[in-house]
Design a protein around this nucleic acid. Structure first.
Lengths: 337, 337
DNA sequence: GAAAGTGCTGCAATCGATTGCAGGGCAAGG
DNA sequence: CCTTGCCCTGCAATCGATTGCAGCACTTTC
């Protein structure tokens, strides 16, 4: 459908050979063709509305100008900015992104992975933490270029782009200390995500350093439901309530909001809450959420940059790019009473 | 990179011709090959980990198993669910989606359109209202299959999937009337979106029918800023404040929240606000937003279904699928005092 | 004036799969 | 024993572009 006009048509009209047309229309080779011929070819191409068939080109050049992006779930609000960051860099270089969602399923991830490889993507961006058993490793063995974003590389020699999670947690704790909090709880994300561990460890270290009484509870997912569940459980266990909770991400923090409201506990008067990520509209929640802003767009853009660099020159190895984060103080944290 | 093993390798190992391998490995033709041979081929393919090169296949079959999805902006919260709905239908049929963002620019839209056509996408899904000057028409003339989602087809004979916007507005007005409101304002979206007009017209018609005093103000974009701007302007104009505003979408409604807060006007005590779309987390805003839930995921899924149907059989023409919407009453609407 | 070099273009192979056509092998039927 | 027909498989063209190689025309150099 659609693209009836081929390079042969242009060649015929311009009175030259198809090979010459190809050379005339490619940046890299256009200086191999006579100036006047070049003009004729361009004119003919324009007249016919010729656009090269990228499938045919891809077959010959062994590249698809396509990048596969593997994420858990596009409706998780942190991913749209990441994807757009990726896209911004890709588009300007003529690449396109094919985004697939795994919904946290290893099987789905593998299936999508195979499908992308089959499509001859020129590279992959992994944004899932959940590939514990290392699809990335397999990708590396198969000679596929890739980078990680929002997760570490788990030992596989691919570059990784992450936010400075430890620093974000540190800033959150410092903020809480300043408000007089001493009993703090961390809601840790599921263990399959590398970010969970890093944030939890930073929390423990930070508490030790600041002399806080810190506790850690693990959640089953990075979701509102899991956050609420964890908090509900805490209420039911009758253990002493912390005066502040540092949630593993904004969704967990929202779950905390729900649980607190359900139990008639006021935020921030009774319990302060800090999120992580500064997801879109976090400032419009009730109460406006204090949270750590992670530069998702920039992370995506940087990941794409590293991938393209890898594609058109040598592999970079397991370098790690850490982008700075920033605590955004809003209304969900307040002085302890 | 990656895919070293070709159909010729499999043929060699199985001791047959490449053509036979191709027939053996395709659903449609596998009954053309002897049962025992088929076993041998499958075994060989498995042993070598063979996966067909979809670029090569695409060149021959003139199909890429790829669908282009053109949206304004992925970070607009209504699009992730739509995209996932599309994806859900596409994936199960072996298709992939390439999503591009236009940011409302006609130029960007055209560029992306050309790029997608060049990539030989098997079809397109338009989710932008802003293609006034009818890329869709051009697509149709070029014989490209497409469907519209969340916008009408603007006269081009492609199927369109929309929510029942008029009914949503009607329900909103009925709800407000029940609460005693009589002076209502509609914040209309920008004229380039077909949804803007439809909602505004339904608003006017609804007010007439219910005997309400309705006013309409047009916003420059479907964004928080535009909503706030429109409301700020209203305050500055010193005209009489309505007791309720029916926003063109949730982002505009959020803008109204901001403006009201800025001017010390309470919602819902002084002014009720109704949104449109029920974007994710609308229930977590301050106050929790009363809004019309649009089935975005289903709209995406239905659009993809219609497109695939169009691809593997006859075109359906300009049919229109209208999905039901539902008013979700939360805390941003209350009785007039 | 011969040799060497340069600039441009055509030729044809190639990428990896799909598919119409032809033909071999074999059984059934006359 | 020959014909007919059915299965199955091989052959080779094909999709549309890219690219190494060869060759032609012409200039430069000694």
């Amino acid at each position: 459908m659609s693209n009836r006009v081929t390079i042969a048509d242009v060649a015929r009209l311009a009175g030259v050979h198809a090979g010459t047309v190809s050379r005339a229309l490619n940046q890299r080779t256009e200086n191999q063709v006579n100036h006047e011929t070049l003009g004729r070819v361009r004119q003919a191409a324009k007249q016919l509305g010729y656009a090269p068939n990228s499938i045919a080109r891809g077959l010959r050049t062994n590249s698809s100008m396509t990048i596969g992006v593997i994420i858990p779930d596009l409706t998780n609000p942190i991913f749209p900015p990441i994807v757009r960051g990726i896209d911004s860099r890709l588009t300007e270089r003529g690449y396109s992104a094919v985004v697939v969602n795994t919904d946290g399923s290893d099987d789905a991830e593998r299936l999508h992975f195979e499908s992308l490889v089959q499509r001859q993507v020129d590279g992959l961006i992994f944004a899932t933490g959940h590939s514990g058993h290392s699809l990335a490793g397999e990708a590396f063995d198969r000679g596929i270029k890739a980078v990680m974003v929002n997760r570490d590389s788990g030992g596989v020699p691919f570059p990784a782009v992450v936010g400075d999670d430890a620093d974000g947690i540190r800033a959150s704790l410092a903020h809480l200390v300043e408000l007089g909090h001493r009993n703090v709880l961390h809601l840790e994300g599921p263990p399959s995500f590398s970010t969970s561990r890093i944030r939890a460890e930073a929390f423990v270290a930070g508490c030790a350093e600041l002399g806080l009484n810190g506790r850690v509870v693990q959640c089953s997912a990075y979701s509102v439901e899991a956050g609420q569940q964890a908090m509900d459980d805490l209420f039911e266990s009758n253990s002493k309530l912390p005066t502040a909770v540092v949630a593993g991400n904004d969704l967990l923090a929202l779950g905390v909001y729900h649980s607190l409201r359900l139990h008639g506990v006021k935020c921030p008067e009774d319990v302060s809450v800090v999120g992580f990520n500064d997801m879109p509209f976090a400032g419009d929640f009730q109460p406006a959420m204090t949270t750590v802003r992670t530069p998702h767009f920039e992370m995506g853009a940087e990941a794409a940059r590293l991938l393209l660099e890898q594609i058109d020159s040598a592999p970079r190895g397991a370098m790690k790019v850490t982008l700075p984060v920033e605590l955004v103080v809003r209304a969900s944290t307040g002085p302890v009473r």
